[in-house]
Write a protein that binds this DNA or RNA. Structure first.
Length: 111
DNA sequence: CTTTTGACGCGTA
DNA sequence: CTACGCGCCAAAA
């Protein structure tokens, strides 16, 4: 029978997502889809939504999460986009001329 | 309650 | 490489 996962407040979906993002080493980046699978999220969108819900100054390195193209995603109304790039470059993450990151090099987790 | 939106991913042409 | 569409689900309106 269909049994939706018990909504456990102590291990809510968002908490799992944030926990996974925290595991991303410095100087490395991951993708929404990758995080979604790690935490068993129903879809990658939820991961992005969780990032958008993050408060400013959170201990979650949301900056290390990019889309599967290795590019910094654009958000609706805000300037965090430029912010993210600066933070990543401060971690020695190289951006190509098109503003993309080589996931083959900086991708995480690495096999 | 219903409808729309959204920091996405992936298959197919 | 681009273009189009569908899936998946939570939060906001």
């Amino acid at each position: 029978m269909k049994k939706p996962r018990t909504p456990d407040p102590a291990a809510s979906l968002y908490s799992r997502i944030y926990a996974a993002v925290r595991k991303i080493p410095k100087g490395r980046v991951s993708t929404y889809g990758r995080i979604a699978r790690l935490v068993r999220a129903p879809g990658p969108r939820v991961v992005g939504y969780a990032m958008a819900a993050l408060p400013a100054g959170s201990s979650v390195p949301w900056q290390r999460v990019v889309n599967h193209k290795g590019e910094v995603s654009l958000r609706k109304g805000g300037d965090g986009e430029l912010r993210q790039r600066q933070l990543l470059e401060a971690e020695s993450v190289h951006f190509s001329l098109r503003g993309r990151i080589d996931l083959k090099t900086y991708g995480w987790p690495t096999p």
